[in-house]
């Protein structure tokens, strides 16, 4: 009973953060800022939902699958964000107009002019 309450609480927290992540996807201006929302809130939210499932189920085969899911989300989501942002920058997708500095672009131009 207590375990179910805690598990449900964790799941609800996860859903709340997922909601904020999706809201960020809609509201933020460019692909890089959107990735910020997507990697942080959605990782934490989805991991929270899976972890809540694990708390309710315990160390059954079902709960163990949820736990492995948490580990995989934590490992893969930053790598995916890195790949997407790097690809976006290489494809010259512009940064939002609020952007104050872009060291990456500077260094890339330097490399091309010396090569």
């Amino acid at each position: 009973m207590i375990r179910e309450t805690i598990g449900l609480a964790v799941i609800i927290i996860g859903i709340a953060f997922d909601f904020f992540g999706v809201l960020g996807l809609v509201r933020l201006p460019d692909v890089y800022n959107r990735l910020q929302a997507a990697t942080k809130c959605v990782t934490f939210g989805s991991a929270g939902i899976l972890f809540g499932t694990f708390i309710i189920q315990g160390f059954s085969s079902f709960g163990f699958k949820a736990l492995i899911g948490v580990v995989f989300i934590f490992l893969t989501s930053p790598v995916a964000a890195h790949a997407i942002s790097r690809a976006a920058h290489r494809a010259r997708i512009p940064l939002a107009k609020e952007t104050v500095v872009d060291e990456y672009e500077k260094d890339k131009e330097l490399k091309q002019s010396t090569a």
Partner: peptide
């Protein structure tokens, strides 16, 4: 990090100052 992003996203003015 999550509370920070949730704050930014829920803020009506969207207080961001992005850069690389």
């Amino acid at each position: 990090a999550n509370i920070h992003v949730a704050y930014i996203v829920a803020h009506p003015m969207l207080p961001i100052k992005p850069g690389i």
